[in-house]
C-alpha cells in the first residue's frame, strides 16, 4: 500500500471526505459509521488538538484492525479528560496505568493476546499505546525504548503538544526552543526555553531500527490515517509521533488548532515523514513555503519574540532549525505536487 493522493480538483486531496469518491477511498473520519473511539462528552479544552488527533488515530487503527484493538494510555490530558469517574469517552477496551509505563503495559497486553491466540482462546487483537510528549519523551522513555528494542507488537502513538499541559504547561524534552512555559519563563538573557536542548523521539525511534516510524499532524488527516493504517499492517514495534497543537499551552485561538499544525508543517518546523527500519522512506513535502514567523506570531508562547523590538536573532535561529529540517528531510515544495 502506498499513499495515493486523491486527485479531485474541487476539494483536492485535503478535505476529510469527498462525496464523489468511492466509499473505500474515503477517509475513516468521513465515514458515518466511524467508531468515534473517543466520543463526545470528554472534558478536553475547546479546540483540543490531542482529542482530535486521538480520535483520528484510534478510529483509523480500529478501522484497520476490524475493531479488534486494545489501547493503553499514559497519564496526561488525554487520560484525564477522557475518563474522569463516572464517565469514559472511550468506546474501545482501554486501560490507564501510570504516567511512564504505557509502552510496557501495551507490551503486556500484546503478550497476553499472543498467548491467548496460541491457545485458541482469543483472536488477532492488536495493541496501541498512547501518551503525550511528557509521557513519551520524558518519563515514559525507558519503557518506550524497551518496547522498541524488543520489537514488541505495539503501535505507540505520541501526541506531541510540546509540554506538560495537564499540569499547567511546564517544559518537556519536546518543548521547542524559545517557547514560554511555566518553567521556562520569558525572562533573563535567553527568554523562554533554551536552545540546543530537547530531543526528537522519532529520530531516536528510528535508531532502534524498528519496522516503522512516522510523524504526522492533525492538519493532514489523510496522511495520518494512511500512516496509522500502514502501521497496523505491520508486526513489531511501531511509532507514530503526531503534532497536536494545544490552544491552552500555545496561547492560540481554539479555532486555529488545525491551522497551527498546518503552519508547523509548512514552515518546516515539524517534518512530516515516514521511515522503515531506520531509513526515511517518504516525506510530506511543503506545499506553500512560509517563514517561521507565520507560525510563531499567532502563538502567545512566543509573544516575547514580537515585542516592541522583535527578537530578530532568535527568530532567525528558529528559522535555521526549520531550514535544517527542510534540508535534512528534503521537505522542499516540489513542482507538480499539489
Amino acid at each position: 500500500m502506498s499513499l495515493q493522493p486523491v486527485k479531485f480538483y474541487q476539494t483536492g486531496t485535503f478535505t476529510v471526505g469527498n462525496r464523489l469518491l468511492a466509499p473505500e477511498e474515503r477517509s475513516v473520519q468521513a465515514n458515518m459509521q466511524r467508531t468515534s473511539s473517543l466520543n463526545s462528552g470528554h472534558r478536553a479544552c475547546q479546540g483540543c488538538g490531542e482529542a482530535l488527533g486521538a480520535r483520528y488515530a484510534i478510529d483509523a487503527a480500529m478501522n484497520a484492525t476490524n475493531r479488534q484493538l486494545i489501547a493503553a494510555n499514559a497519564t496526561g490530558c488525554l487520560e484525564v479528560f477522557s475518563t474522569p469517574y463516572p464517565e469514559t469517552s472511550w468506546q474501545i477496551p482501554w486501560i490507564h496505568s501510570l504516567f511512564g509505563n504505557a509502552a510496557a503495559v501495551a507490551t503486556g497486553i500484546a503478550a497476553a493476546i499472543k498467548v491467548k491466540k496460541q491457545k485458541g482462546q482469543g483472536g488477532d487483537v492488536r495493541v496501541v499505546a498512547q501518551g503525550g510528549d511528557g509521557g513519551t519523551t520524558d518519563i515514559g522513555f525507558g519503557c518506550l525504548s524497551g518496547m522498541f528494542e524488543r520489537n514488541d507488537d505495539v503501535l505507540y502513538i505520541c501526541y506531541d503538544n510540546g509540554g506538560y499541559m495537564n499540569t499547567g504547561v511546564q517544559r518537556s524534552s519536546a518543548t521547542p526552543p524559545a517557547a514560554r512555559t511555566a518553567t521556562t519563563m520569558p525572562l533573563g538573557p535567553e527568554p523562554g526555553n533554551v536552545f540546543d536542548q530537547g530531543k526528537f523521539v522519532p529520530a531516536i525511534a528510528m535508531a532502534h531500527e524498528i519496522p516503522y516510524v512516522a510523524t504526522a499532524t492533525v492538519a493532514d488527516l489523510r496522511d495520518l490515517e494512511y500512516k496509522v493504517t500502514k502501521a497496523m499492517g505491520i508486526r513489531g514495534a511501531r511509532y507514530i509521533h503526531i503534532l497536536v497543537p494545544c490552544p491552552l499551552g500555545w496561547g492560540t485561538a481554539s479555532h486555529d488548532t488545525i491551522r497551527m499544525a498546518r503552519l508547523a508543517k509548512e514552515t518546516g518546523i515539524f517534518p512530516v515523514f515516514e521511515a522503515e527500519y531506520g531509513e526515511v522512506k517518504s516525506v510530506l513535502a511543503i506545499r506553500r513555503p512560509l517563514p517561521v514567523e507565520e507560525y510563531l506570531r499567532p502563538q502567545k508562547r512566543y509573544a516575547h519574540l514580537f515585542g516592541k523590538s522583535p527578537a530578530v536573532a532568535t527568530i532567525a535561529r528558529i528559522q535555521a532549525l526549520a531550514d535544517k529540517n527542510i534540508r535534512k528531510y528534503r521537505l522542499q515544495a516540489r513542482q507538480g505536487e499539489h
Binding site: 474541487q10 478535505t15 476529510v16 473520519q29 466520543n39 470528554h42 480520535r55
Partner: peptide, 22 residues
C-alpha cells in the same frame, strides 16, 4: 470540479472530521 462551491456546503465532511468533540 474546479468549482470551490463558495459559501455553500458541498459535503466535504471537513466539519464532521475536524470536530474534536465529535
Amino acid at each position: 470540479r474546479r468549482c470551490m462551491s463558495c459559501g455553500n456546503c458541498f459535503e466535504c465532511d471537513n466539519c464532521y472530521g475536524v470536530c474534536p468533540d465529535n
